[in-house]
Design a binder for these strands. Structure first.
Lengths: 225, 225
DNA sequence: GTCGCGGGTAACCTTCCGATAATCCCGATA
DNA sequence: TATCGGGATTATCGGAAGGTTACCCGCGAC
């Protein structure tokens, strides 16, 4: 079973206890005490599960939870000081999968961690990033800085095809084959039309595209440079 | 101690014996003989432990085990006809917690069942939250801000299936398989109707759904964005 | 029996999307 | 500046996808 667990908590004594318990059960814990550093730590360690204290210095637990959830579907278990209903609701709304009220029995914690890990045999959801556009492939959702953008199925597929290999140029023929499934298409101008529609929705300034860029004489690519 | 035990076995004589033994020890057994019906029975009875025969008509034991494990951390004890190593390995890999080789002594079975139940420090109450809808899976209850909403079993299963992976899109085919158990269904419009009925009950404004959202050309998902 | 309820089937309506085609724009080159 | 080619833009139409409603069937309660 996978076992990397990131513990985000500023209580040193508690963190030490968690370390002993988790290691004893075969997990590999890593630790960070500051909310602001949690996201960096998450990116570095890519844990299989996050244990997150609600009360933190720096960014608070709910904020951290949302940020992690924005870029990963990793299981998140919240630690809360008391059974405050509001906290619980907020925690779940912000994307946590479970919560444990302090004080808790080590066995209970381990049981919940195991339970969460068991149902995460799927790889973490695929999130693509181009400029300030974020794409959640499994959720078929596209955002610019938390602002949801509505794309048609075709527009979405087109964007994903480009974004999966950023900076690589795709000819119209290749796009027609990958996105439309047309082989040996004669007329490729169809691509132009849909690139245009896509730009109208996702570009800040459609006159000067930064997400889907034209490479004259060749085709299109995602991102600059 | 909790004691609901679901027995999945097609051997009527064995099932009867198990029933007598389990009842005699204070458990509440329920029975299903067909692998295909096991998952439905599991969802209906919400047992505290599952006794699962490896050889079954319909879906086989390993398949059933995986499906149950996909939606619950309930302890699963396998019954195997002979000490076939491959079967044992497969069984444990598919998520079973223990196995017993037939023929076995009733006392041994009871001992293992007790051991497994002891180790289940109360199953984590699975609470799902989508918008202002709260779902208590074990309690089969759905609320909007302390207001109880009455759902039919099918509607409930549909909602839970979606809510277990918020923001992830499910195609109608997948929903038909997960919720209805239909495999390779031809006509998927059935899903539309029940999504519609579900929305009428749980959405504040069914015209503009926020809990169960359509993703055109793909399917449905729980929650926004 | 019959009443009510849950669930499946089907018909109809509405909305939306994607392909085609026609036109415009712009930059490069002579 | 005239011309040409590649790309951008816009309008329109047919069809597909989803929503909505009505009806039917089966089953359990009474």
């Amino acid at each position: 079973m996978k076992g990397r667990v990131l513990v985000v908590d500023d209580d040193a004594a508690l963190a030490e206890m968690l370390g002993i318990v988790l290691r004893g059960e075969g997990f590999e814990p890593s630790f960070v005490s500051d909310g602001d550093k949690a996201l960096d730590a998450f990116r570095d360690t890519r844990p299989d599960l996050v244990l997150l204290d609600l009360m933190l210095p720096g960014a608070d637990g709910i904020d951290v939870c949302r940020r992690i959830r924005a870029e990963s579907g990793v299981p998140i278990v919240m630690l809360t000081a008391k059974s405050d209903t509001i906290d619980v609701v907020l925690g779940l709304e912000s994307g946590a999968d479970d919560y444990i009220v302090k004080p808790f029995k080590p066995k209970e914690l381990v049981a919940r961690v195991r339970a969460r890990l068991r149902r995460t045999d799927e790889p973490t959801p695929e999130i693509l990033q181009i400029g300030d556009i974020t794409i959640d492939v499994a959720g078929h959702s596209v955002k610019r800085l938390d602002e949801t953008i509505n794309l048609t199925p075709l527009e979405f597929d087109l964007l994903v095809a480009l974004a999966r290999k950023p900076r690589q140029v795709f000819t119209r023929e290749v796009l027609l084959e990958q996105v439309w499934g047309y082989r040996h298409a004669a007329d490729t101008r169809l691509v132009n039309v849909h690139v245009q529609r896509l730009r109208a929705k996702i570009e800040k300034d459609p006159e000067h595209p930064e997400i889907v860029v034209t490479v004259r004489g060749v085709g299109y690519k995602a991102g600059p440079a």
